[in-house]
Structures are given as structure tokens and as C-alpha cells.
Nucleic acid binder design. Structure first.
Lengths: 262, 262
DNA sequence: ATGGCAGATATTGTATGCAGTTGCGAAAAA
DNA sequence: TTTTTCGCAACTGCATACAATATCTGCCAT
């Protein structure tokens, strides 16, 4: 097993009460270095799932996964349950958990919810955005356009994620931001699946500019509507791309079929 | 410790490989009887926190809690982390987790987000509600009015919860419903704190009737707005009640101070 | 040949043990 | 009496051990 796993850190399990210092030389993103192992596992697994390294339908064998990540089953199980709550993993009682597969219906629902949340966030942000916040959004937009011009796909998507997140943060509402973050993981997974097929870069950039203009003008209603439309467009692109390269997906799609994309 | 714990089920730990059948005679809600222990722990703990049995600020000692619930620390830890993701519990590295305390700001944010989600849900529901679904909502409203007339507070709140949930479910959007459920836990906690002080029963009933009318008329925009306003009213009532019976709560409120209510 | 059953194996669910860290209290110094 | 420091007890975090359950394989009966 352990098929699509790219980085089998520490393949052999440490045996007993032995030095665990410097065990994972270079793991996660940044400051979560000294956070509990289960947090690192969550980050790592989420990245692997979202980026398709663990394809939808893949069974997650606790023992193998734990060994692959260089930790024991205890923190791994905690991570798996957290990701299940986030909707990235499906828990099956007394059976291996597995990466949830995305069918067209779920993707539509996901983006519909996301659009609603971002609309709400934009409306609030239009009222609460500080001049500094607005400047930051404009900087991010500049970054996006620069990366787009340079054709750097990964950086483009990262910046895109960042500006959406920044808008939501500008709403100054923690619970809203958390709900948004929870959905975003799954949406990113869907977007990643469709990523190679459809880009829509130019339209997306233009829409962003309009949204920023509405925010700057404090036009709450318009900012909300524009952002919701923007997300909806993305959803259409993603579902169309998936429909083109995958089974009709009226059925739950069962397994890794969705991954069979050029 | 274990202060406010009311029901120390199975006080003594089972020793080893012994019959665990019929261990917890009547635990949770319903069909989660045969689900993993951590699921039961989540349900149990959530109920205890929401209903104030575990006051905000209370330290959650894993060993004691596990013993109190009749299980070991492993599934308990999983439950605690799940509830932390839900925002009911605050995790402190290498220290006991504790029940998160609610300050006025957070309560406002919470209900603001909730209002936004329910508005979205109502708009979708107005478009998708089936005749059967509408009938069900009307039945729930009848139940609420009956319980109100009978003065049965608990039943009233349960039915109230049910109709809000039902509206959200009528939107036919799973991710949205999940996000809503996650926020609802904390909101219920806040409402419970203020419960004894302010009721607002009549206004609430009238608002419900208007919402149902808008849904029946398929007036998506109006249904959304009414529901959002309804939630906002509840938020005002809750925060006003808390402000009256608790410290100004400009500061994080530190501990169980909020519980000091008549 | 095919269907179903029995043993064997693999994998989850739960409990327990052990090491590291934190906080608290007691004792000593000012 | 007040303050500082050291030591101890408690608790968390992680790993592992053990029990329960599901899956798989091959054999036997039809």
C-alpha cells in the first residue's frame, strides 16, 4: 500500500524510548514546528489530499500512514478525525477511512456555500475594511497579476487563495472565517482536480478588479454580489472541466476514477 | 476536580478485557449507541458544555474526565480535539484544555455569522422547498406554539432548534448545513447562558410565522432577510442579557465569571 | 465449476505505560 | 514579612500493547 505517498519520512518505526530529537528535519509550513504531532499530521495530510497526492477513494491504513509520516497511530488518528470533520476524509466504522470522492453535485453545493459565505464576508468587509486593509488587498491583486503575467501557475493559485482569504479576514468575524476555511479545503481539492483543464485566468483577474473597486467604494451589496458571482463562475468552470474528463458522476463515483485526468 | 459533573457514569475504570456490553445503559441521543466511544464522548461533552454543566473556563483534566465518562484517555482526547475544532474547547499546548469562555464580541460575531448562513439557507430553501418540506416546517411551528402555550421551556427550545435546523436542511446543501451546525453549538451555549434572563417568546413566534409565510410564497429575498433579522434579534437579546448579569466583558472574561447568573 | 463456510490475516478501536513539561508549593534568602 | 529558587507532583503527549472486528484465502460440498 502507501501508493501515492511521495515522502516516506523515517520508514522504520523507532523502537522504544529512544532519541526522538531531530526526527522530522523539515516538515510543515512554518511555525507549527513545535506544535503537537497531530497538527503537523493534519497539515501534511490535508496538503496531500488537496493536491491529489492521495487520490479520492484511497484507503487510509492507519499503520502504514503513521509509519510513512514517522509517527505513531495515536496522533495520526486524531488528525484523521479532524480531517473527517472537515469533510476531506470519510470515516467508516471499523473499516479504513478513505479520501472522500467528489461528485458533481457535491462540488456544486460546496461552491454554492462558499459563494454565500464570501458574499457575506464581502458585505461585512465593505463596511469594516481599513485603508491599510484595502492597500493590502490591492497589493495581493498586484501580486496575482504579476504571477499571471509570469505564467507561474502555482504562485498564481497561492496568491489567489491569499486574496480570497484576506477578504474574508477583512470581515472581522472569526467564526465566519473558520467556516470559510473549513469549506475552502474541499473546494481547493475540487479546483485542483480541474486545474489542468481550465484556467479562466483573464476573466478571474478582471472580476477581482471589480470586487476591489466595490470594496473601495464601500458598496457592500455590490461587493457581495460580485464575489458570489465570481465564486459561482469558478464552480462552473470546475464542474465543466470535471464533467469533460470524468464519468457523468451521477453516481457517487466510487473511487479514484476522478483522478484519471490528462 | 470534576466539579460540575452531574453524572459520573461508571466511576471505576474497568480493569482488563472484561465484558463491556451494557456498560453505558442509556447514553446519548439515539442511534449512536454502537458508534465509537469518541463519538459518544463528543455528544456527551458538547451537551455538558452547551448546557453549562461545564462552565466556561473549566479545566478539562483528561484523566478525570475519562474516568467520569467511563472510558480511557485515548478516545477522550479525540473527542476533545473535535470539540476544539468546533470552538467549544480551547486547547493549550502541554496544559489542560478548557471550556472556552464567551465574551460579548465573540457572541456578536457568532450570531452575525449564523444570521448570514441562515439567510443564505432561507434564500435557497425558498427556491427548493417541497410541499412536504413546507408542511413539515408548519408542523414544527405548531409544535413550538403548543410548547410555548404549555410553558414548557426545554421543549420550546428543542422545537425552536429543530425548525431552524429544518430550514437549513431545506436548502439542500450539505456543506452549508455542516457549517451551520458547527456554529450552532456555540450559539446554543451563549443562548443557554442568557436563557434564564430573557425569553422574547412572543416576538420570536411572530417572526417565525412571517418567515414561513415568505418561504411559502417562494419569496427568497424576503425569507432570507427575515431570518437574518430574527437571528440578529436573538443575538441582541442574548448579549443584552449577558451584559446585564456579567462583567462588561471588554476583557476576555477570564473564567467562569459569566456563569454567575441567577 | 460455483457457492458458501472456516480458518487465518489484516486493521481498527481501546487501554495503558513512559517520558517530558508545567505549575505549584515549600523552603530559604533578603 | 516579602521575594526568590528549588523540588515535587500532576498532567499532557506520544507510543505501544491488547482485544474486537472485518476482510481475505482456500477448501469443501453441491
Amino acid at each position: 500500500m502507501l501508493g501515492p505517498m511521495s515522502d516516506p519520512v523515517i520508514p522504520s518505526q523507532r523502537k522504544r524510548g529512544r532519541p526522538r530529537k531531530a526526527a522530522l528535519p523539515n516538515v510543515g509550513t512554518a511555525a507549527l514546528r513545535r506544535a503537537g504531532l497531530h497538527v503537523r499530521a493534519v497539515e501534511r495530510l490535508r496538503a496531500m489530499i488537496v493536491q491529489g497526492e492521495l487520490a479520492p477513494g484511497t484507503a487510509l491504513i492507519e499503520g502504514d500512514l503513521a509509519q510513512g509520516l514517522g509517527l505513531s497511530r495515536t496522533p495520526l488518528r486524531e488528525a484523521v478525525k479532524l480531517l473527517a470533520q472537515e469533510g476531506l476524509i470519510e470515516l467508516r466504522a471499523n473499516r479504513s477511512a478513505c479520501v472522500r470522492s467528489l461528485d458533481a453535485r457535491e462540488i456544486l453545493e460546496l461552491f454554492e456555500a462558499l459563494a454565500g459565505l464570501e458574499r457575506l464576508a464581502a458585505e461585512l468587509a465593505a463596511r469594516r475594511l481599513t485603508p491599510a486593509g484595502l492597500r493590502r488587498l490591492e497589493e495581493l491583486q498586484t501580486t496575482i497579476e504579476r504571477e499571471h503575467a509570469a505564467g507561474r501557475r502555482e504562485a498564481y493559485y497561492a496568491a489567489n487563495r491569499a486574496i480570497h482569504r484576506a477578504i474574508v479576514e477583512s470581515a472581522e468575524n472569526r467564526p465566519l472565517a473558520q467556516a470559510h476555511a473549513a469549506l475552502l479545503g474541499r473546494a481547493e481539492q475540487a479546483r485542483f482536480l480541474a486545474l489542468r483543464l481550465a484556467h479562466r485566468w483573464e476573466e478571474s483577474l478582471a472580476e477581482h478588479r471589480e470586487i476591489l473597486a466595490a470594496l473601495a467604494a464601500r458598496d457592500s451589496e455590490r461587493a457581495g454580489r460580485l464575489l458570489a458571482d465570481h465564486v459561482a463562475h469558478t464552480a462552473h468552470t470546475v464542474t465543466r472541466a470535471l464533467a469533460a474528463g470524468a464519468p457523468p458522476s451521477g453516481t457517487p463515483t466510487g473511487d479514484a476514477a476522478l483522478m484519471s485526468m490528462p
